[in-house]
């Protein structure tokens, strides 16, 4: 099963709506609530990253019997140093975004903690692809 969502860059009023749709579907499919809780955190952070940093993006969620894979792909500034971006507390968010309580440098660490496999590929001035996999067992 595969689901697609579009994410608009800069539109904070809609931030979280794709994650919310995925959550509803996972609940309907009776996925383990503990898995849903983790997936939702990772998806939300990835979605907000697109809204806060990129021009636009797409979320594709693939549901298999043993795992959930989510790919969030954006067109945007990219990440120059992924290791640095993974560090808790590091952020390039604008003052406006920080004032809202985002941009604390916790997004990517939250993603890492809440999925079993994380793969980030980025090209500066082109975009970023974040692939998150969560397994149902273990």
């Amino acid at each position: 099963m595969e689901f697609h969502y579009h994410i608009e860059g800069g539109d904070f009023s809609r931030a979280g709506s794709a994650s919310s749709e995925v959550k509803k579907i996972l609940k309907q499919l009776n996925v383990d609530p503990r898995v849903i809780k983790r997936v939702v955190v990772a998806l939300y952070e990835a979605e907000v990253n697109v809204v806060a940093h990129a021009h636009e993006g797409n979320m594709t969620v693939t549901l298999d019997p043993g795992s959930i894979e989510a790919v969030v792909e954006d067109k945007g500034p990219g990440i120059a140093d992924i290791d640095l971006a993974m560090q808790e507390g590091y952020s390039t968010a604008s003052p406006r975004v920080r004032e809202m309580g985002f941009g604390a440098g916790m997004g990517l660490p939250n993603i890492k903690k809440n999925c079993d496999r994380l793969d980030i590929k980025s090209v500066v001035n082109a975009g970023t692809t974040v692939k998150m996999t969560t397994f149902f067992t273990g």
């Binding site: 009023s13 994650s19 309580g101 660490p109």
Partner: peptide, 25 residues
Amino acid sequence: LSDVMGHAREGQVWITIQAHKNVMA
């Protein structure tokens, strides 16, 4: 917001000064 996203648990009361829509998400 990411602190709450990462660490708050179901059924908790969230005490904050943030009043914008993302809080509800």
